[in-house]
């Protein structure tokens, strides 16, 4: 099965997806307005990059849910209004603090809570830290991989920034409030490049059925 990605014709998708660094990672790159039935046949993992116009995702919801219903993996990044079209997504807005690292003695609020997850054999947990766009409440049975504590202003009770959901659909959902494609594609915030350097090989391995977490391998072996 192949790794596919949608792009939305923005300059940052052009750079991050069609640019030389990652273009060969994807077996299929689909301009999202042109997505049509059949385009996802043979696709194991489909990535919805951050900031893809939500109106397209609502329009293509039947095709995207069809991919999950066939057992496919769907990866959904930030600012795509996932709560409006992805099953099980519960998202709360939190104003983005992009300057936290400038404050004296700053330590990141983000925390990887499942370092044993297969993703972190590919991605250095330190490469997940820049900022985030709101928090998620994972559905029961989903694995929270990254979390943050409650917002100091009391806006939320804390939440999740990245989860792996194998229960809400027949497929697998990776949902995140991180925005690596936008920042890498904007030449802005180098951690996002380090994140994609690991994340995309992992997504490729999942598409090929090569990525299995040690815990799952032990359970099935």
């Amino acid at each position: 099965m192949s790794l596919a990605i949608l792009h939305g014709g923005t300059y940052y998708h052009a750079e991050a997806i069609l640019g030389a660094r990652y273009r060969d990672r994807f077996e299929r790159v689909i301009y999202a307005p042109d997505l049509k039935p059949g385009d996802l046949d043979g696709v194991g993992v489909l990535i919805v990059p951050d900031r893809l116009n939500p109106s397209l995702l609502r329009r293509h919801r039947p095709l995207l849910l069809g991919h999950l219903a066939r057992g496919g993996t769907l990866v959904v990044f930030a600012e795509t209004q996932a709560h409006a079209w992805v099953p099980g997504v519960d998202w709360t807005f939190r104003p983005t603090n992009f300057w936290w690292w400038r404050q004296q003695g700053a330590t990141p609020a983000q925390r990887v809570v499942r370092p044993d997850h297969e993703l972190f054999r590919f991605v250095d947990p330190a490469a997940t830290i820049w900022h985030f766009h709101g928090v998620l409440r994972p559905p029961p049975g989903a694995e929270a991989l990254m979390v943050v504590p409650p917002e100091p202003g009391g806006r939320d009770d804390g939440g999740c920034l990245l989860y792996d959901d194998r229960v809400s659909t027949k497929g697998r959902l990776i949902v995140s409030t991180l925005d690596p494609f936008y920042h890498h594609g904007s030449h802005f915030m180098p951690a996002t490049t380090r994140f994609l350097d690991g994340f995309l090989p992992w997504a490729q391995a999942v598409a090929r059925g090569e990525a299995v977490s040690p815990a799952r391998a032990a359970a099935s072996g």
Partner: peptide, 9 residues
């Protein structure tokens, strides 16, 4: 805006 679909435009 910076978020527009330039391919479309």
């Amino acid at each position: 805006s910076m978020h527009c679909d330039q391919l479309y435009l």
